[in-house]
Amino acid sequence: MQKKVSVIIPVYNVAEYLQQSVDSILRQTYSNIQVILVDDGSTDESSNLVDLIKKKDSRVEVIHKNNEGLSDARNVGLTLATGEYVYFFDSDDLVESNLIEEAIQFLETKQADFVTFTHDFFNQHNRYQKGKINNREYKFSRIVPNEELISKLLIGKVRVAAWSYIFRKKVFTDAGIVFQKGKKYEDNDTTPLLILASSKSGILKSKSTPYYHYRKRTHSLTGSFDKSNYYDLISITNSVIKIIKENTSISYELNVYCLNQYLSAFRILKIVHGDHKEYSEINEKIRKYISIKNILNSQKTLIKFCYWKFWNVLRQAD
């Protein structure tokens, strides 16, 4: 008998994409699913649409709540999840029909609690950017020691996002893990906590097409910035540092992670026009982690560093 999988889908003003996205879940070859649509105070047609979707499929449940953000919507959805396994799915993305079946087969066969899987990106014009994220870590399916997997996560070799893995609910709830309410970048600290709490964790390779298709939207939660992005990123980074230092012996990868996070925070300050004190504080954090080895960890890190260096040279010249 198939074990139930609860799919939690926070919904906020995504009427244009919601039906297509939910359909990709409802068309799964794995039938024993509970789909929880958490309407987080949508002001467009999403609120009506989730009710219409519920009427058409008995596996769908709907919650309407005041807008309190993605983290709270996920936490609320989790309280209603009755499945042995849980998946947090984003309401504007798409998945292949075999994702849940093959993920659960991996988890059951390997007796694992956590599995992350392949993905790609596509934009608002349905143009795909395949192969840019599915690096060599996803070339074959396997169990990966938890600390090693966290190391790969910290330096961007595997994804940290909640939509990129399926997990055993009991492990998450028994460890008392919750998403930080009102914070952006909330996946950054919950994911390593979940991996640390798992008995076994793994990576699942797709046979052909990546399992998950992430829609890049200009005006999505992560596609626009204000000062809260900056302060949330700093706060979550501090949380991750604490988690890693208290529970692992990881050093180099944590330093690379911190450098990348703080360089990203600097870029946000440039976008939202930070003040002198904020620039001084973030530059001090960045300088703490600068080394040739850290900068050359990846092309992405190098580009971020060059951006930071360029703007600091300009500021000194003024």
Rank of each mutant, 00 (worst) to 15 (best):
D113K: 03
V115R: 05
F117H: 04
D120V: 12
F122G: 02
N123C: 05
N123H: 03
Q124C: 09
H125D: 15
N126M: 14
R127N: 13
Y128A: 09
G131H: 04
K132E: 10
R136V: 12
Y138A: 06
Y138R: 12
Y138Q: 07
V144P: 00
P145H: 05
E147G: 01
L149E: 06
L149G: 09
S151V: 10
K152S: 06
G156T: 07
V158S: 07
V160C: 11
V160H: 08
A162G: 08
W163L: 11
S164V: 12
Y165E: 07
R168N: 09
K170A: 06
F172Y: 10
F172E: 03
T173E: 09
I177T: 08
V178P: 10
V178E: 15
K183A: 15
Y185N: 08
E186M: 10
D187F: 09
I195G: 01
A197P: 01
S198N: 03
S199G: 15
I203T: 11
S206L: 08
T209K: 11
P210G: 07
P210H: 05
Y211I: 04
H213F: 14
Y214L: 03
K216V: 15
R217L: 10
R217I: 13
R217C: 07
T222N: 08
S224Q: 10
S224L: 08
F225H: 05
Y231F: 14
